[in-house]
Design a protein around this nucleic acid. Structure first.
Ligand SMILES: [Mn+2]
Ligand SMILES: [Mn+2]
Ligand SMILES: [Mn+2]
Ligand SMILES: [Mn+2]
Lengths: 220, 220
DNA sequence: TAATAAAGTTAGTTTAATCTAACTTTTAAT
DNA sequence: ATTAAAAGTTAGATTAAACTAACTTTATTA
């Protein structure tokens, strides 16, 4: 059984592995930054995770999750997203509040709890942020989504997820009248700073490049 | 904010204080035994809890929770019993399964979560074992219950709670066809070993003294 | 009341997870 | 091809929570 610290390292490795893409592996400093610890701390943990056969890793090399490590990581992400869905759907939490509490709940150890919770929620496929929920086998439904920043002027799209999960970002999204499954039309782009004008439910707003890089959409 | 270890010490102190009764205080060894640690370990923690003003305690003296310590302890018990109720009422857990998972869930830190959970469950007054759930102020509805072992021959009573929460005991209770709110009639008592014959829904069974000391009833 | 037992404390050790400071290896730039 | 910067590692220290072994205090009992 893994400690909460070990679980957090594994989870972070899953995210960084996905970000870095196919087989590239993850660096020690990158991992440390993601977990807000010093590289030396991460380095110590890497030895432990290797010992437990959760990662492939050799001195000065890149970190790769083993099959076992990936499986365990997906289970943690499954729990996190199921709990977020529970808080949002059943307990009236807002989507900017769920992440913080799910960070704690994801470490509760009980297989039965996860499966019963999944059933209770009606086997949801996506969490409140539009992120796919892995099934019991660790598989999840990936949408062919792209960033709002990549949508061309004049095109319509539909928001399916957010990248940033921070309360400050999510509250801004709500302030703009935007939510999952809402339509967005890109009216113009400013070459100078890559800001764009978008129309949401008839209302027009100018948003920054940074903003547009944190909204996921699909063509519509 | 308290660590999980600290919370477990406080919770155990609440239970032992209640058991020992009014103002008697709790001993170091007793506390250590309850938490399955060595007395020296408990002793170290006592210094920390005193430092944090959660207990009154001096060398070789008895341990007393402060008002703050009691308040925090009741909050943990409130969370434990609310989670047990959630698992039982909403997720189809059986009453012998809920305690173990609630031992983990009781340490989740989120006031909002507790209050929303309470509301979601319809502000329950008792958990699946018949134990009263403290309200937000830390108060709970105490029943004037007594042990089945104390019921006289020929009398009827109603089971309101169990003392032992272990799966092995709870499964035995179910096997006997017994549950919360069931009527029990005491048919006879054996002076030799204090075993008794009881009738539950028309069926007669002989139960041991130990058993009868773990069932709480009220007159009926 | 003196001896013995029980209860409680202290000192020193261990493990997990973190840190800082110093060092080594790899990568990037001149 | 050197050199400087970035990335990664090692050594040693710290903190929390546990332990064992030895000691002290309090309670019990002969
Ligand atoms: Mn989240
Ligand atoms: Mn999410
Ligand atoms: Mn319980
Ligand atoms: Mn209970």
């Amino acid at each position: 059984m893994l400690s909460i610290a070990e679980e957090n390292y594994i989870k972070r490795l899953v995210y960084l592995s996905l970000e870095n893409g196919a087989g590239d592996g993850v660096g020690t400093n990158e991992l440390a930054t993601g977990l807000q610890v010093k590289p030396s701390t991460a380095n110590d943990m890497l030895k432990k995770l290797r010992q437990k056969e959760l990662i492939d890793y050799e001195k000065y090399g890149k970190i790769h999750l083993t099959e076992l490590g990936t499986k365990i990581g997906m289970e943690i992400i499954r729990k996190h997203r199921l709990w977020e869905t529970f808080l949002y759907e059943k307990l009236e939490f807002t989507w900017d509040e769920v992440h913080e509490v799910a960070e704690q709940l994801e470490h509760i150890q009980s297989e039965k709890l996860v499966e019963k919770l999944d059933k209770f929620l009606g086997f949801p496929k996506f969490d409140p942020h539009g992120d796919p929920i892995p099934n019991q086998a660790g598989e999840m439904q990936l949408l062919a989504k792209k960033m709002l920043a990549a949508v061309n002027v004049g095109e319509q799209c539909k928001m399916v997820a957010v990248k940033d999960n921070s309360a400050v970002f999510l509250n801004y999204v709500v302030e703009l009248g935007l939510g999952i499954n809402n339509q967005i039309e890109v009216l113009s782009k400013q070459d100078f700073d890559d800001s764009m004008e978008i129309r949401i439910n008839g209302k027009t707003n100018r948003v920054s490049k940074k903003f547009a890089q944190n909204i996921y959409v699909i063509a519509d």
